[in-house]
Nucleic acid binder design. Structure first.
Lengths: 199, 199
DNA sequence: CCTTGATCTGAACGGATGTTCAGATAAACC
DNA sequence: GGTTTATCTGAACATCCGTTCAGATCAAGG
């Protein structure tokens, strides 16, 4: 087994993943060869196999790591259960925009390359995605129980809101006209009204 | 030039495009070889070059046709300008869901394969996409002028709503629990409230 | 200082890729 | 019915693919 001791592989491993993520996001998994990834790292193609058993696993591990970091980050940032549904929904909205815009490559790859996953790998990633949707669905249901939200189909509303929020990535640029805080406020306004009880 | 007379090429041309669209949607442009498309049509790979100059043009024409049909279909379905912004927004919402769910493959390809387009082809498709967003932006601005919508950033709201509506494609299935009409109603409810003036 | 073991190179493998083209095929026209 | 013309085949092309592996390299540990 490689990487068991403190050699420079502890550096090269992350560099392989970074190069792969960046290239997969820009050109697509199928269009990026192991030789191109190796060239980006400054190494020959064969050396990559010290860090991944094959190309498919490299893709899968990138996606799995991203989804698990997403879930862990939200679980760490979520308000306590005694907070109201409204507060939780605002926190979720702002969290999702902030987290996803900082990891645009990983978000992009985790969505676009699903069909290049082996069936077993696909269902694992799909399961993690469902877990994330379920977090939002629970918030919406809580708000309905409190009488503050009017949402007849919480699961579908959760998917709709996540799609809307993830869409920020297609146009947001760090140095654009609007700051991240302004974008969060704009979207939170739409989210709040979309599910509010009195409208 | 091929296809100038009434031979069976008038049949084969569309069959090539259908096979390519279906395969591109399922496996991705880069993963689908000309030989696989040819096999789906029941022909050898070389024969495809009677219908497209190369693989890139085949992809581009699929995307261009889809975007132009989308714009034409909306322009034909849009309420007259004297109709209110609210009526136009409802029409847009229902149109977008209906049109996109019936052409899931084309929608999928036109979004996922953008990075596999040559730069010139990319900017043409991007322009058509902007045209479509502008249609919705104009509706939102009209509603604001009428005092019925509260939208401070119509362009961003348009992109947000389109992202939400297109997300239907990721989960909607023809024979699922909800009919297309019910889905339209659910999303129209969220769209209406997200931009409504009084909330 | 010598051994150990992780890491990398460079070549090789079988196969797939987009595209071209000479020649076969067959349908449409005069 | 013979000719034209569109269409298709089947082979060939140069190139790239993921992956393997014997041997070189080189830093660390005893």
């Amino acid at each position: 087994m490689a990487r068991t001791q403190g050699s420079h592989s502890d550096i090269t491993g992350p560099r392989v993943r970074e190069a792969a993520l960046s290239l997969f996001a820009r050109h697509g998994y199928a269009s990026v060869s192991m030789r191109k990834i190796a060239a980006e790292v400054g190494v020959q193609a064969g050396a990559l196999y010290n860090y991944t058993p094959d190309k498919q696993t490299l893709l899968f591990e990138l996606m799995r790591a991203h989804m698990e970091e997403l879930l862990a980050a939200w679980d760490a940032a979520a308000p306590p259960p005694e907070a109201g549904g409204q507060a939780a929904l605002e926190a979720f909205t702002r969290f999702h925009i902030r987290f996803n815009t900082r990891r645009a490559d990983a978000v992009f790859v985790s969505y676009m390359e699903l069909r290049n996953l082996d069936p077993e790998n696909f269902s694992i990633i799909e399961g993690l995605r469902r877990d994330y949707e379920t977090r939002l669905e629970a918030i919406l249901s809580r708000g309905v129980a409190e009488g503050r939200f009017a949402v007849t189909e919480p699961r579908i509303a959760a998917m709709a809101l996540i799609a809307m929020l993830t869409g920020v990535n297609t146009w947001f640029r760090e140095r654009g006209r609007l700051s991240l805080g302004q974008v969060e406020a704009l979207y939170w306004d739409m989210v709040r009204r979309a599910v509010a009880n009195q409208g």
